[in-house]
């Protein structure tokens, strides 16, 4: 009895989570003229792949923008985070804990509260509308979370290891390169996945700070779907395209993805 209840609950939940995806697929595979509201759940006849081609044509430059943006910002912020985490975990100084807490606050601020000055600043340094401006912004606002993840990770490395290397005459960077870095792969993976998904999926900065040539795919999707009389096959195909990279990351690297999630909840 209990088992039946358990499985029907799980089945119901599965439906809740998967039905939307099923509908997206159905719609994306239909001829635009055949998409009508009352037959949305009907299997496409014939199956029509053209929408993906059209959506890909339209989204390719934006997709590239997103890729460049997410990859470079992720790489940069992982590097910054590793160094910061190393300093805070292994070279703490007076007040470093307080500075760390002040830094962490940056993770929680609603970006609306800095949007106007940010906008003016990016404009003033001449990066408005460029992908570089957006990369800079993502790296900076990523500092708190990446520092947190690396700091927590490096705290687990025994201080004795660092101490031993120091006695052997290694300096700050020597220890980092030869002792800490070789142990860091899991932290890098966690940070990379976390930052990649966050940046790929981000919208507010993207919509305020870019111009059409440098738009990431989320902005393009929102504008396509928000536009008028676009048939729904395109937004749905576009949504799948926009979701694909992060979904792949999730499916293949799910374990690390989860770890990033848990780290994101500040389990100090």
């Amino acid at each position: 009895m209990g088992r039946i209840l358990l499985y029907s609950l799980l089945l119901l939940a599965t439906l809740f989570f998967l039905l939307p995806v099923y509908l997206v697929l159905l719609t994306a595979l239909k001829e635009p003229a055949k998409i009508t509201l009352d037959t949305v759940w009907r299997w496409p006849d014939p199956v029509y792949w053209e929408s993906f081609k059209v959506a890909w044509e339209a989204f390719r430059p934006k997709f590239q923008n997103s890729a460049v943006l997410a990859l470079s910002a992720t790489a940069l912020s992982a590097l910054v985070g590793a160094l910061n985490g190393y300093v805070l975990a292994k070279w703490p100084f007076r007040g470093s804990n307080l500075l760390f807490a002040l830094m962490l606050f940056g993770m929680f601020i609603p970006y609306q509260s800095i949007l106007i000055p940010l906008f003016q600043f990016v404009k003033a340094i001449g990066l408005y509308g460029t992908l570089w401006g957006l990369i800079l912004v993502h790296v900076v606002y990523g500092i708190p979370i990446v520092t947190l993840i690396f700091k927590n990770y490096y705290s687990e490395i025994p201080d004795e290891l660092v101490e031993a290397a120091r006695i052997d005459g290694a300096g700050f960077f020597g220890i980092f390169r030869h002792v800490v870095l070789p142990l860091s792969a899991p932290a890098f993976v966690v940070v990379a996945i976390w930052q990649f998904t966050q940046i790929w999926n981000e919208f507010l900065f993207a919509v305020t700070l870019t111009r059409p040539e440098s738009q990431p795919i989320t902005v393009a999707l929102a504008q396509l779907a928000g536009g008028e009389a676009v048939k729904w096959n395109l937004p749905m195909a576009g949504a799948l395209l926009a979701a694909l990279p992060t979904l792949l990351v999730y499916i293949f690297l799910g374990r690390y993805f989860l770890r990033g999630l848990l780290a994101g909840s500040v389990k100090g």
Binding site: F119, V122, K123, Y128, G129, T208
Partner: peptide, 8 residues
């Protein structure tokens, strides 16, 4: 508007 404000 964002573009004009952005001096672009």
């Amino acid at each position: 508007k964002t573009r004009m404000l952005g001096g672009d």
